[in-house]
């Protein structure tokens, strides 16, 4: 569709217009870049453009920590339909949805709960204007600005009054918003576009510099389970599962059942391969009993299994796992150690 200019005031009008027929979630700056809040409880002064990704992984909107998925014996249980919009997503958030799409929108079986939320949610992204020390999207085929996967990309370059708005070509929702609010969009001036390119370049340079100390090794799925690096990681890991809960692409869950009156509710709750019981089978046998086997599974999964099956990484380089780890495990250090040993 193209790129446009939008005044600050029109931006607020746009959010107002979107929130008139969707539940709109926006980042708030009342705490440090942490979470999304509902726009209609906030007032326009509270909304801000996050510099980098929020702490909350966007998966929580599409694949909540716990939800009901079925009833027995009636079986009739359908997803509720809520039109939503989320503003403030970064490229790594969009990339995480691409990973989850591979899992939940399979050719043969579709998760109707994920799918309806995906269909009903307008995604409004924005560029990164700063990077965190933990960001490494550049190493997993990402970049600090949205390329695709968004409906609208709203860019507010530091020091500029006006915004730039990109509308994704293939997005029917983006087009809908544009058509309903055409008067808010103006032609984009050349100088703003040039500034955008240079801002994007400088973000990329910063990421390259921050992360020049490691590479993602080839064939991570085939790194020996006996490699000493895993023992080191296991020594630091406290098995809290924070890395998997905060990870925007971790999608493991467990189904469970509960009876209320004479109806059985089946639910889905997040699970984690860091937990000891994760792969236990009948009779108590457990292929991932040792902590070592569980910590390395995370690497095999994101950089091995997922890559082999889908041709892109199952990690978006958002760095949330690094920030959240009580044992100070940094995925990048582990990958570095592994590469060095792989070469020798």
């Amino acid at each position: 569709m193209g790129i446009y200019k939008m005044t600050d005031r029109n931006f607020i009008s746009l959010l107002d217009s979107i929130s008139s027929d969707r539940e709109l979630f926006v980042p708030t700056n009342d705490q440090e870049e942490t979470s999304y809040k509902r726009w209609d409880n906030l007032g326009s002064s509270a909304v801000h453009f996050p510099k980098y990704r929020l702490n909350t992984p966007v998966k929580t909107f599409f694949f909540p920590p716990k939800e009901s998925v079925s009833r027995f014996p009636s079986g009739d249980f359908k997803p509720e339909r809520d039109k939503r919009a989320i503003f403030g997503l970064k490229q790594c958030d969009l990339a995480s949805l691409e990973v989850l799409d591979q899992i939940f929108l399979d050719d043969e079986i579709i998760d109707p709960f994920y799918a309806t939320r995906r269909q009903d949610t307008l995604l409004i992204s924005s560029d990164c204007y700063e990077t965190l020390d933990t960001c490494f999207c550049n190493k997993v085929e990402g970049q600090p600005f949205p390329k695709d996967g968004f409906d609208l990309n709203l860019i507010k370059l530091p020091g500029e009054e006006d915004l730039l708005v990109e509308i994704a070509g293939e997005s029917s929702l983006g087009k809908e918003v544009y058509e309903a609010n055409q008067e808010l969009f103006d032609p984009a001036p050349e100088n703003l576009l040039e500034k955008l390119s240079s801002s994007r370049r400088s973000m990329e340079e910063q990421l390259d510099e921050n992360n020049d100390f490691f590479e993602i090794p080839e064939d991570v799925g085939n790194i020996s389970p006996k490699h000493p690096v895993w023992r080191g990681v296991a020594e630091d890991c406290v098995e809290c599962g924070a890395c998997t809960m905060i990870c925007p692409t971790c999608h493991c869950f467990q189904l469970y059942e509960q009876t209320e009156d004479s109806t059985v509710n089946r639910g889905k709750v997040w699970d984690s391969c860091s937990f000891e019981g994760y792969s236990r089978v009948a009779g108590g046998a457990n292929p991932m009993e040792s902590l070592e086997s569980r910590v390395r599974n995370r690497f095999y999964d994101k950089f091995g299994r997922f890559y082999e099956n889908h041709d892109f990484y199952g990690c978006t380089g958002c760095g949330r796992c690094i920030e959240s780890c009580m044992g100070e495990i940094d995925m990048r250090d582990v990958l570095k150690e592994v590469s060095v040993a792989n070469q020798s």
Partner: peptide
Amino acid sequence: SCGFGMCGH
């Protein structure tokens, strides 16, 4: 758990 490629187990 799921039986169809989503839960990871």
